[in-house]
């Protein structure tokens, strides 16, 4: 009886211990299924199909080696899109990082309504890119846009300007401002989280040693926020490399500011050349991985307090 009871207790303990061990796997299972089903399998499929001719105009699907990549390299629109996308990345990552750091530092010390400010900051991030682009279309409008109106009222311009038109650098910068408006709040929050971990004592000690706020920013804040800055920069790299909504709505298909993602869309869904679409997606994915790795290597530093 006793033995039986002991055995039952042991079994129950084993069951509970087993459940405890299984719990993390159960909790993480939906995410794993999601990642495998919607990320990994389509990713592998894309990588494989990139080496096949896949188009409903020329069935059946056939292995064609690196023909898709050669065709893309010869496509002038893709080449222009690649250069433009590089500009989007450089301009966008720089602006989002600087703005993110500035916003995070502003929020670093508690002030009245800080929570409300943080909540308001999130709004642009929560808006769909299409909605934002429509809003900014009105702001940039060359005939009746707010930007022209304000600058003209301040006597900063003589005539209303076409912001997104002929000049590649100007057009890309103005389109990138829209994307930065969306992603800077997330950058700020990531950096803000890193700043919150910096002990106040460090600033107090620095102040006692005669360090002013500017030097404290360069010597304490920036170095210790590097993990947060690196993550923020990586998400900025991913977003800018994949820019589509803003470029398409504000610029159309014009070479002035067309992006690689726009070309992926045109090749895949307009030209129905799925093989080349997969190949271009693969190129963008690899570029994202390489650039993200570089950012992590250059910016990320392990910080211990």
């Amino acid at each position: 009886m006793v033995t039986l009871t002991r055995a039952a207790t042991t079994r129950r303990r084993t069951t509970i211990a087993g459940r405890d061990r299984a719990l993390p796997y159960i909790l993480v299972a939906p995410l794993v299924i999601f990642v495998i089903g919607l990320g990994l399998i389509p990713g592998i499929f894309t990588a494989v199909e990139a080496f096949f001719r896949v188009t409903p105009f020329h069935p059946p699907t056939q292995f064609n080696g690196i023909d898709n990549f050669i065709a893309l390299a010869r496509n002038s629109a893709v080449r222009v899109g690649a250069v433009n996308t590089l500009l989007y990345v450089v301009i966008g990552v720089a602006m989002a990082t600087v703005l993110g750091v500035a916003m995070a530092v502003t929020l670093q010390r508690p002030f009245r309504f800080r929570t409300a400010v943080i909540a308001a900051m999130i709004l642009p991030w929560a808006l769909p890119g299409v909605v934002e682009s429509v809003i900014w279309t009105w702001i940039y409008d060359p005939n009746s846009g707010v930007l022209n109106s304000v600058l003209h009222s301040l006597h900063l311009i003589d005539n209303y300007q076409v912001w997104i038109g002929n000049n590649r650098l100007v057009a890309i910068t103005f389109i990138e401002i829209v994307q930065v408006w969306q992603m800077a709040p997330l950058c700020a929050l990531l950096i803000f989280a890193a700043l919150q971990a910096i002990p106040n004592e460090l600033y107090e000690a620095a102040r006692m040693d005669g360090c002013n706020a500017w030097r404290a920013f360069w010597r304490i804040t920036l170095p210790l926020a590097r993990p947060g800055i690196a993550i923020a920069m990586v998400q900025a790299v991913v977003n800018t490399l994949n820019i589509f909504d803003q470029a398409y709505l504000l610029n159309g298909a014009s070479y002035t500011a067309t992006s690689l993602m726009e070309q992926t869309y045109f090749i895949t869904f307009q030209n129905l050349n799925f093989g080349q679409g997969y190949a271009l997606s693969l190129v963008v994915t690899l570029a994202t991985l390489v650039l993200s790795f570089l950012v992590v290597r250059l910016v990320y530093r392990k910080v211990e307090f």
Binding site: N166, Y255, F266, Q270, N271
Partner: peptide
């Protein structure tokens, strides 16, 4: 033609580039 989408895409991007002086 069956390839109209590709043609039109090339046409409007090239026309835009010509008109804007690129």
């Amino acid at each position: 033609p069956v390839w109209y989408p590709q043609f039109s895409n090339a046409a409007y991007t090239a026309i835009h580039a010509a008109v804007s002086g690129q």
